[in-house]
Design a protein around this nucleic acid. Structure first.
Lengths: 154, 154
DNA sequence: CAGGGATTGTTCAAATTCGAACCGCCAGCC
DNA sequence: GGCTGGCGGTTCGAATTTGAACAATCCCTG
């Protein structure tokens, strides 16, 4: 067992900043979305991914891999969205086990109404606070971080 | 109502990276801590803050401001830690309403045992993946982000 | 074509989270 | 002294999350 390499001052600042920002930004966004559009952040993310997919539909597993939560969590949220009429389930013709989540017209409309306020909050909380260089560093650095975590065990 | 300023490609990468990294790193850490020391990440954070405080004790409110979760969430976690004997409650002599959370010897020992593995995971998942320049950008940028979110509504 | 292992999505119980309501108490003000 | 406003922490119920167990199905190999 090697000696523990503790974090130096800069590493510590980066780590605390990451931790705090991650919690605070998420909290703020969730709040904004709920007040503004009655959607939770997880739900909004689901709608976004569906709307970006061809024909507005994706397999449950693909949706889950996109991230956010576990398989069971996804089942739950899609059920909620289905109750709200924003998403519909369609069974996959080529694989009986498979299920597509399909964005309904109401879902697309809801998303379009929610998006501007959401983007504004993302800017206010994160994007517009950073310098261009910091933006670049975040995009590259955190992109790499998530890529690694995704493959190594996801 | 101004036109919506959508995110350009770089901003989008930064935002997605932030979102994904935030979820994945947190998940991974929680897992590591639970497997390795039987502590959840929130619990670990509480122990860390207490151990850094004079006499290993803090008022509940100060602890909650440190962040992580709501007041009620903190009450819950402190209760859990108390059951596990890692933390003790002590009422504040000068203010009957006040409650101190105090780190016990067992709590300090548990934290010291958990720390090396935790730091190693923080390095593996985040710190050691970033270049020094990216580290600096994260520290400065996300530090500023959390500072703003904290004052503006926290 | 049968067998075995991997996949798909759901269900379940348990743990955790949040916000709102609440109680007791401090502090300033008349 | 007594009132009023607000703080500090807990309690409560509802919503959400997770991992493990499950049932059904697919696909590869022999």
């Amino acid at each position: 067992m090697a000696e523990t390499r503790w974090l130096d001052e800069r590493e510590m600042r980066a780590w605390s900043g990451f931790l705090a920002a991650s919690a605070l930004v998420n909290r703020r966004l969730d709040q904004q979305l709920k007040d503004d559009s009655g959607l939770s952040h997880p739900q909004y993310e689901i709608l976004v991914r569906l709307s970006a997919a061809p024909d507005g539909e994706l397999r449950m597993t693909e949706l889950a891999n996109g991230l956010i939560n576990s398989k069971s969590g996804l089942t739950y949220q899609v059920t909620q969205l289905e109750k709200a009429g924003l998403v519909r389930r369609r069974s996959c013709p080529s694989d009986v086990r498979g299920v597509f989540a399909v964005l309904t017209d109401a879902g697309r409309a809801r998303l379009e109404r929610a998006a501007p306020g959401h983007v504004a909050m993302v800017r206010e909380a994160l994007i517009d606070v950073l310098t261009p260089a910091q933006l670049e560093a975040l995009a590259d650095g955190l992109g790499e971080v998530s890529r690694r975590l995704r493959e190594h065990g996801g």
